[in-house]
Nucleic acid binder design. Structure first.
Lengths: 126, 126
DNA sequence: TGACAAAGTTAGCCAAGGCTAATATAATGC
DNA sequence: GCATTATATTAGCCTTGGCTAACTTTGTCA
């Protein structure tokens, strides 16, 4: 059961906003992801059905343990990709971040693992 | 005017199939892209409206000069990405190709250019 | 404590890009 | 040259993931 790129973005966004602001609300997420609140609500419904988040009506969003695990996994992908672009290819941070955000959803596990090793090696060498 | 990932795939596919088989027909493209023929027809209509291809009813697909230029550009991206995965990261060819196919649509020009340099440098070094 | 602002929700619309079923045209072989 | 097969097209459906407008709930503060 593969999560769509969009739902992965929501999940990752929830984790990020929680870490930044202590809690993640619909409006925070809408701001972070540059979408409107009703779009957030609609997507949260799907994440609830998948058991990845919980939310009391009109309240802040909670990640379930499986939701948190998945969000962390996606977030880790993001960071390795960003490190590769920023530290290895020396791309400016903003572009590195944007590219990471798009590629994290489509890169294969195999390629991601090799890239992780590659980035590690580069860090040690410098 | 940015072409969607899907339309980029069609355009690139047309170029590829033409090179392989001499001409690109709806059925060839459907096979290559793993979609059904009516989906191809629908997408070709959009590419026609954008002036990227021409097609007489029930006949093979022709790239216009701007369509060809764009297809070549996309194809080049694909090849550099594939080279990076296959030759630098030593990913198996099939996976390298699949990742290239997905990432070519989302990578920024800036990052792509740096990656191109990086791959060139690696080729010389080996 | 009651009014108002902010946050969340619902309903319903739209475009993109798949699909199937049915139809039309082209190409092939007897 | 005609029947059959392959190819292309059309019509119409579905899902995803946006949006706006309108409404409900929550929270704040005078």
């Amino acid at each position: 059961m593969e999560l769509s790129a969009s739902l992965q973005d929501y999940l990752e966004g929830i984790l990020f906003v929680q870490q930044e602001k202590g809690r993640a609300r619909v409006a925070d997420l809408a701001g972070f992801l540059n979408v409107k609140k009703p779009s957030v609500v609609k997507s949260l419904l799907k994440l609830k059905e998948l058991g990845l988040i919980e939310q009391e009506p009109y309240q802040a969003i909670q990640l379930t343990s499986s939701g948190r695990a998945l969000a962390l996994k996606i977030s880790k992908r993001h960071n390795v990709l960003k490190d590769f672009f920023f530290q290895v290819l020396m791309i400016d941070e903003k572009t590195a971040d944007r590219d990471a955000c798009r590629i994290e959803h489509v890169i294969s596990s195999k390629t991601f693992e090799r890239l992780t090793q590659f980035v590690e090696k580069h860090k040690k060498a410098s």
